[in-house]
Nucleic acid binder design. Structure first.
Lengths: 326, 326
DNA sequence: CGTGCACCTTAAAGCGCTTTAAAGGCTCCC
DNA sequence: GGGAGCCTTTAAAGCGCTTTAAGGTGCACG
C-alpha cells in the first residue's frame, strides 16, 4: 500500500480534508476535539505531507536565493550551514555566485528569475539604496554585512577586532599591526576595532594593506616591520601570512603572534591552530532564516537587525612577545 | 504581470498545453513544426517550469537520500559536490548521517520514510545481501564502496595505493610501510595495492595498524620503525601522522616521506602540502547521479559499476630518502 | 472514392494539498 | 418558538503540470 494522503487521514479521523489541513498546519478554526482526533489519526497512519503539493497549492516556491563569494571559505561554511538549516525549515537553496564587485547584481537577477521567495546576501558591499530598492522587489537579508534600511545579521566586527587586539596587548605586545581586508564595510569595521584598541592603550595603530585571500596575507608578511603581534582581517589571509612567516624562518608564536578572524575550519587544523575570532555561523544562519521566515509569513514589516557577540578563540598562534620572556 | 505558465506558452504557440509539455520535455510526439513554434514561444516569454507542479503531476518527490559518515572530511567533500550536482539535475538531497557500524540501517529507514526516490550510500560497508535486498525496495548506489549485485561508483583503490607505493619506491625508498584503515573493503583494497607494489619490487611489505581519523594516524607514528616511506590509508590519518612526526622532530620529507589518499582539502593546504591519491570527487558524483537518473527513468536494469582511475598528486611530503642524497 | 493507417494534437482527468465561500449547528434571547 | 449571531465543518475550486485516451488529418492504397 502506498503512503497515506491527506484524504486517508481525513477518513480515519472522520472529517474532511480541509479540517485535517487546518489542524496539521496549526491554523485556527478546528475545535479541540477535531484537533485531537486528526493528530491521532495522522500519527497513527504515519502521515507526512507532500511538499510539492503543498507548495503548489500555496503558490510558493519554497526557494531561497543565496548570493555568495565563491572564493571565501567562510562563505562556504555559511552556505553549508544554510543548506542544513534551510532544509530543516523546508526551504530549498539556490546558490548564486558572485566574483568581484558589482557582479552581485547579475547573480541577484538570476535568483529572482528562478522564483526565489527571498534573498540572503552574504557579505554584500552593494550600495545601501540599491539594496533598499531590491528589498522592495523581494525580501532580503544581508548576512555578514551592513546597510541601513534592510534586514541584516552579523557579528559585531569592530568589537571582535578590538578583542583580538586587546588579547595581544594583554599578552604584553606593544608593536601590534593590523593587516586589513581592503575596501568594504566589514574590513573598515574590523580595522576600526583594531585602531580603537590601540589608541585606548596609548599606542600608535599601524595598518598594513592586505585582502581576503591567502596571497594577500602572504604579501603582507614583508610589511610587518618590527611588529611582534598581528591581527589579520580574516583567517584565510592569516593562514597565508603564517605560511610566509614560517617559510621565512620566523617562529609563530615565538617571534610573532598572529590572530585571525572568522574561526574558519582552516584555523582549527592542528597544523594551523590559529587564534581567531569566532562568528558563530549557526546562530548567524538561524537568525537570518528567522528574519526571512517571519517576513514571508507577514509577521513583520519593520527592519530587522541582529548583531551577535563575537567570541575570541585563543589557540596556538598567540603568546607573549619574545622580549617579555626569560 | 506574473510569471508565464505553461498555458501562456500554449496560447502564444497556438497549441495545447499538452503539446507544450511534450515539447519542453523532449518527449516524442510533437512534429518538428510544433516543436519549433513552442520553443520559440517559451524562449520569448522566458518561461520556466514550476518544479512543484511538475513533481506533483509526475508523482515524484525529487529527493535523493545520502547516507554519510559525518566524521569523514572526504564524505563532506562528496556531499558538498553532491549538493551542487544534484541541484543542477533538479534533485533535492536529504542527508542521513550514520555514526559507527550498523547505524546505516536506521539512517536508511529514515530516508526511505521521507519519500526519497533513491539512495546514495557513501563508503558503505554493509553486507552485500542486505544491500541487494534494500536495492529491491529503492534504487541504490554505493559510492566509494564495493558490493556485488548493486550499482557502485568508486576509484580503483588498489591501483591508487599501488601507484603511491611505486612513487615512493621510484624515489629510492626501500623501507616503506603502510598505515592501514582498519576493517572494510576499501581499506583492504588499498592495503592490497601497497602489498602488490612491494612484492613486485621484491620487498617485504609491512602493515601498521591505523584507522580513518587523525588520532589513528598519529598513533601509528610510533610503529614506523626504520621506515623512510609511508603510505597511509587516507589523508586524515596522514595529517595526524605528519603532525606526530613534526612534533617528534622528524623532518618531512627530509627524514620520512608520507603519502595519503583522497586528495582532501586538508592535503592541499600550504601547511600540509601532502602527496596523495586523488579521487576526482566531481566525476564520482556525476557518475553516481547518472546511474540514479538512468535507473529512475527506467532506462536501465542491469547493475552498473563504474571504476574510475585514481590520480597520484605529488606534493611536498615525498622526496628521496636521506641515504640517497649527498 | 471509400478505407485503413500512421501521425499529430488535444481534451480532460488527475497529482495532493490549500483556501474560501457557504452550509450546518449551537446557543441565546426576545 | 423563532430568529440572530457565532463557531465548526466542509464542498469545491483551484495551483501548474503530466499523461492518456480519444479525436483529427492526411495520405497511400484498393
Amino acid at each position: 500500500m502506498s503512503r497515506p494522503r491527506l484524504a486517508d487521514v481525513a477518513t480515519a479521523a472522520g472529517c474532511s480534508t480541509a479540517s485535517v489541513s487546518l489542524v496539521l498546519r496549526g491554523a485556527p478554526g478546528p475545535s479541540e476535539a477535531t484537533r485531537v482526533r486528526v493528530l491521532a489519526a495522522a500519527e497513527e497512519l504515519g502521515y507526512r505531507p507532500d511538499r510539492a503539493a503543498s507548495l503548489l497549492a500555496r503558490r510558493r516556491s519554497g526557494m531561497l536565493g543565496v548570493v555568495t563569494d565563491v572564493r571565501s571559505t567562510f562563505h562556504s561554511e555559511l552556505v553549508e550551514e544554510l543548506l542544513a538549516a534551510s532544509a530543516r525549515r523546508g526551504f530549498d537553496l539556490l546558490i548564486g555566485a558572485r566574483s568581484p564587485a558589482r557582479d552581485e547584481e547579475r547573480a541577484v537577477e538570476t535568483l529572482i528569475d528562478s522564483r526565489c521567495e527571498a534573498l540572503l546576501l552574504l557579505g554584500t558591499s552593494s550600495p545601501g539604496e540599491w539594496l533598499v530598492a531590491l528589498d522592495g522587489q523581494v525580501p532580503l537579508v544581508a548576512v555578514t554585512g551592513r546597510a541601513s534600511g534592510v534586514d541584516s545579521v552579523r557579528v559585531d566586527d569592530e568589537r571582535g577586532a578590538r578583542e583580538a587586539t586587546e588579547h595581544l596587548l594583554a599578552l604584553g605586545h606593544r608593536a601590534v599591526v593590523h593587516v586589513d581586508g581592503g575596501p568594504g564595510t566589514i574590513a573598515a569595521d574590523r580595522c576600526r576595532g583594531y585602531e580603537r584598541a590601540m589608541t585606548a592603550a596609548g599606542l600608535e595603530p599601524r595598518v598594513v594593506r592586505g585582502g581576503h585571500g591567502e596571497a594577500d596575507g602572504a604579501a603582507a608578511a614583508a610589511d610587518l616591520g618590527a611588529a611582534t603581534g598581528v591581527t589579520v582581517f580574516n583567517d584565510r589571509a592569516a593562514v597565508g601570512l603564517l605560511d610566509a612567516l614560517v617559510r621565512a624562518g620566523v617562529r609563530v608564536p615565538g617571534d610573532v603572534s598572529v590572530a585571525g578572524f572568522d574561526d574558519s575550519p582552516l584555523s582549527r587544523l592542528a597544523h594551523v591552530d590559529l587564534t581567531t575570532v569566532s562568528q558563530d555561523v549557526p546562530a548567524l544562519v538561524e537568525h537570518a532564516l528567522d528574519l526571512v521566515a517571519r517576513r514571508l509569513d507577514g509577521e513583520r514589516d519593520e527592519v530587522g537587525e541582529v548583531v551577535l557577540a563575537p567570541r575570541l578563540v585563543v589557540r596556538g598562534t598567540t603568546a607573549p612577545p619574545p622580549c617579555a620572556r626569560p
